[in-house]
Amino acid sequence: MQQFSDTEMSALTQAVVHHLDEWKISAEAMLCVLGLPEEVRPRHMQQYRQGDKAFPQTEDIMHRIDHLVGIADALRTTFPFSSQMRVMWLQKPHRRFQKRSPLTVMLDEGTDGLMKVRIEVDCAYGYAINDALQAQAMKATA
């Protein structure tokens, strides 16, 4: 896992909170999606937003951040001219998620849900995962 300096982690924290703010989700949902420790309260999100505090660099949180940034980038590519469409896509029930919204999948399933949503919206990531799984299967049978 790559380690970031305090300055880099502060900037990354602010960028991730900015994405989550654009998605118009509550502070409680932000805490859940990020998998922050239980002692972090919704009111603390303002400290992260302003750069007064940075997310901890645990493996789980860094994986979640990677997926969130990937989802945000893919949504910007898919809907380059409309932030409203990005929010709608996240909140609208989706057939591939058994009529649940992508946001619900992320909240209910944690890191696995983030990966599922990222695979759905980011075809390049989906192909990379598929290729890695196929290579692993080939290696196991050899």
Rank of each mutant, 00 (worst) to 15 (best):
residue 79 F to N: 05
residue 85 M to P: 00
residue 103 L to D: 01
residue 50 Q to N: 14
residue 120 E to L: 11
residue 81 F to S: 01
residue 82 S to Y: 11
residue 45 M to G: 00
residue 103 L to V: 06
residue 10 S to P: 01
residue 37 P to H: 08
residue 127 Y to R: 15
residue 141 T to V: 15
residue 94 H to Q: 10
residue 89 W to H: 06
residue 27 A to Q: 10
residue 76 R to A: 13
residue 64 R to Q: 04
residue 44 H to G: 07
residue 52 D to L: 11
residue 57 Q to A: 06
residue 38 E to W: 06
residue 120 E to A: 15
residue 125 Y to C: 09
residue 72 A to S: 14
residue 93 P to Q: 06
residue 3 Q to D: 08
residue 34 L to R: 02
residue 60 D to W: 08
residue 73 D to R: 05
residue 69 V to H: 07
residue 59 E to V: 12
residue 9 M to T: 01
residue 24 K to I: 07
residue 44 H to S: 15
residue 73 D to Q: 11
residue 86 R to W: 02
residue 10 S to H: 01
residue 55 F to W: 01
residue 96 R to I: 05
residue 11 A to L: 08
residue 1 M to S: 14
residue 81 F to C: 03
residue 38 E to L: 14
residue 95 R to T: 09
residue 122 D to M: 02
residue 71 I to W: 00
residue 84 Q to M: 13
residue 116 K to D: 04
residue 67 H to V: 04
residue 112 D to E: 11
residue 139 K to F: 15
residue 7 T to K: 11
residue 85 M to R: 07
residue 44 H to I: 07
residue 128 A to P: 03
residue 14 Q to I: 05
residue 89 W to E: 07
residue 41 R to G: 10
residue 76 R to M: 08
residue 27 A to Y: 13
residue 89 W to N: 04
residue 108 D to V: 08
residue 70 G to M: 05
residue 23 W to V: 00
residue 9 M to H: 02
residue 51 G to S: 09
residue 120 E to H: 14
residue 133 L to Q: 10
residue 21 D to R: 12
residue 124 A to F: 01
residue 111 T to S: 12
residue 30 M to H: 07
residue 42 P to A: 12
